[in-house]
Design a binder for these strands. Structure first.
Lengths: 233, 233
DNA sequence: CGGCGAGTTGAACGTAATCAATTGTCGTGG
DNA sequence: CCACGACAATTGATTACGTTCAACTCGCCG
């Protein structure tokens, strides 16, 4: 990779905070890679060969059962880190939900580099702790929330996480976004079927809390009521 | 704390691998604390004041909703690490399921120490990555598995995690253990009600796969069939 | 205009939740 | 040692939520 100093996620990814010479050394190890929507870059159960920073796009992290049932266990956005460092095999797959751009490292090179650069490991630790918090929050959703609560939670979560991306000229952009997931994927993320997802979305629409101009676009009209719905019956 | 060199979890906890002088410096910061069954040492939503290594006993990590619904998002055993470093508030509670013994640090002291000792942070990172793997595995369970599959998975998971504890003279100890959870807690961990937990256990018993001599004790008779049950319909 | 895939809507079903009653277990005190 | 009370667990009957199966609609592209 030529130059990290112009990277669009340089201030938010785990590379942030590295000294200039450290950054250029890391840059030598990485290469940019474009991945198309639907393309899988890490395979569940396979040897963990690569890790990467997400520069652009949205990807899903998923696990599946022998008979094909699939659970999405994470959604990653620009500046997030993907892959499983320090482990022989990857316990999950990573697949692009939109066209995406990655900054890819071989796992062995990254593992070695990070052991020699505590600041990088520290950033990675913080990120992993945050990811664990999110995973546990989602366990609460999957274990205890009703279908309606799940959908409301998803919309709010997507709103904030997509919102963290750019700096927003207007507040409205928080309440208006494109879902990077289709109905099946929403179901796989929430532990519901497409039919239930569809019905719950229709319900929210008919209650006037949201609008759905097209299949991907969401407009949140009543954020506070949606928040109430997300947290209690 | 006097002396880490005699600690029963010294080879397995994150302290393992520290140099002797590092270890004694860390030991100065920690103190042993006994906690009784049912006692909570970290509160969800409160300031994250302490972190700790588990020396003995079993504890649950849990999150709850405004109306009281509770989800257990983790179960921790001796040598495991608890608490939320590098974060103002703890997003979850930690409560003893059995009488337990902890090696407690103030979070601020631990945060500072670990930033100066990359080896410690590295161990913590590996552990956090493993915990994240487990959380995601559990998301698959909560999102996609049937009640029967969940119970089978739990029994196997408990068997192996309790088994990692001691070195076993005989193989049978893997197939025979005491559940540190009551039925309500099993329900809160699996996203089921006590009644469903009870019915599924009774079913496994009547099929001869397991025996339940008393409320806590479990004997696994047919491990392979239980494994099959845990993974597919 | 036709056909295909994604999404929505409807009807019937099934799994687990809920409500309710009973049994079992453990700790305490007679 | 047994009787008692309190709580945990089991079992049964009913309900409800989400799933499943199926038909239909919409938008898009050839």
């Amino acid at each position: 990779m030529k130059d990290c100093s112009q990277c669009v996620v340089r201030n938010r990814a785990i590379c942030a905070g590295l000294l200039p010479d450290e950054l250029s050394a890391l840059g030598q190890l990485g290469r940019k890679q474009m991945v198309g929507r639907g393309q899988t870059v890490v395979w569940e159960g396979e040897e963990s060969l690569i890790v990467a920073n997400v520069i652009a796009g949205v990807l899903k992290v998923s696990m599946s059962m022998a008979d094909g049932r699939e659970q999405i266990v994470g959604v990653v956005f620009p500046s997030d880190f993907i892959g499983r460092p320090f482990g022989k095999d990857s316990p999950y797959s990573v697949t692009a939900l939109t066209d995406a751009e990655l900054c890819v490292f071989t796992r062995s090179a990254f593992d070695g580099f990070s052991r020699e650069h505590p600041e990088l490991e520290h950033k990675l630790l913080r990120r992993t702790l945050e990811e664990l918090d999110r995973a546990r929050e989602w366990m609460l959703l999957l274990g205890k929330k009703s279908a309606g609560e799940r959908i409301a939670t998803l919309l709010l979560e997507m709103s904030t996480r997509l919102g963290e991306q750019g700096c927003h000229a207007d507040i409205n952009s928080l309440n208006q976004f494109d879902l990077p997931l289709d109905r099946q994927q929403i179901g796989d993320l929430l532990g519901l079927t497409i039919e239930t997802v569809s019905r719950q979305l229709t319900k929210l629409k008919s209650q006037g809390l949201i609008a759905l101009p097209d299949r991907k676009h969401v407009i949140i009209h009543d954020r506070s009521r949606l928040t109430q719905l997300a947290m209690a019956a």
